[in-house]
């Protein structure tokens, strides 16, 4: 029930946007996430965006993880 998926915002009309993921397009409400722009990735839960995804943070998570696990693999 807390399932939420990342989607890319492709068009914004009032409180709604069109967002897509893997070829699936959906109408998504933006009431809970102000200042969304076209091209942003948001997490969508039950038809509402609940947060904007932070690409920089995602890259940092991956690079930290790769560093740590590579170090562990060398031990």
């Amino acid at each position: 029930m807390c399932l939420a998926v990342p989607m890319k915002v492709t068009q914004i009309v009032g409180p709604n946007c069109t967002a897509e993921m893997s070829g699936i397009t959906a109408r998504v409400r933006l009431d809970l996430v102000p200042d969304v722009r076209v091209g942003d990735y948001v997490i969508v839960h039950a038809g509402y965006a609940i947060q904007r995804l932070d690409e920089q943070e995602a890259l940092e998570t991956l690079s930290l993880l790769d560093e740590l696990s590579a170090h562990a693999a060398e031990e």
Binding site: A4, R29, L32, H45, G47, Y48
Partner: peptide, 13 residues
Amino acid sequence: GIGFETTAPLTAA
């Protein structure tokens, strides 16, 4: 309206 803090704000909205 079933769900935790993830869903309740949607219901509020």
